[in-house]
Computed example of a mutant assay.
Amino acid sequence: MIRHLVLFRLNEGVGRDDPRVVAGEAAFRALDGRIPEIRFWECAWNISDRPIAYDFAINSAFEDAEALRRYVEHPEHQAGVGLWREFATWVIADYEF
């Protein structure tokens, strides 16, 4: 199994109530159950207010590297990524477990 973690930081001046953010969050929340390669999916807003904290996180799992690749290339995932590019930056970590 591969764990796929993504941490998002909203751009300066962008809030959670921004309509672009609301649409981006909805797009990622909708992926669970829509992309067959997803084995585990959760996403949520960070509750920490520490200065080093990111704003939003996705914690997901995939059977293998090929399944993760298919997820990354899936049109619905790519559509969500396109939305988030407008208002956030992110980092990822993928590891086997």
Rank of each mutant, 00 (worst) to 15 (best):
F87H: 08
R85C: 08
A79L: 04
E37Y: 09
Y95D: 12
A30N: 08
P51K: 07
W41A: 05
Y95M: 13
L68W: 02
D94H: 12
S48D: 11
A79W: 03
A79P: 03
S48Q: 15
E66I: 11
C43K: 05
P36S: 11
N11C: 12
F62A: 04
F62P: 00
R69G: 02
D94S: 14
S60E: 04
D17G: 06
A57E: 07
E37F: 01
P36L: 05
Y54D: 05
E12P: 04
E42P: 01
R69N: 06
S48L: 10
F28P: 00
R34A: 13
R85F: 08
G82K: 03
R29M: 14
A61C: 14
P51M: 10
I58S: 04
L83R: 07
N59H: 11
V21M: 03
F97Y: 12
E76I: 01
E25D: 10
Y54K: 07
V72D: 04
R16W: 11
R70V: 07
A61V: 08
I52K: 04
R70K: 15
D64I: 08
L31M: 11
A27S: 15
V21P: 01
N11T: 14
D94N: 12
E12W: 06
I2Y: 14
W45Q: 08
R39V: 14
L83K: 05
V22R: 15
H77R: 02
T89N: 08
A30T: 12
A79V: 02
G80Y: 01
C43Q: 07
E12Y: 05
F28S: 00
A27T: 06
R85I: 09
A65Q: 08
A65E: 15
V81M: 01
D49A: 05
R16K: 12
A88Q: 06
D18M: 03
D94K: 14
I38N: 01
R29T: 10
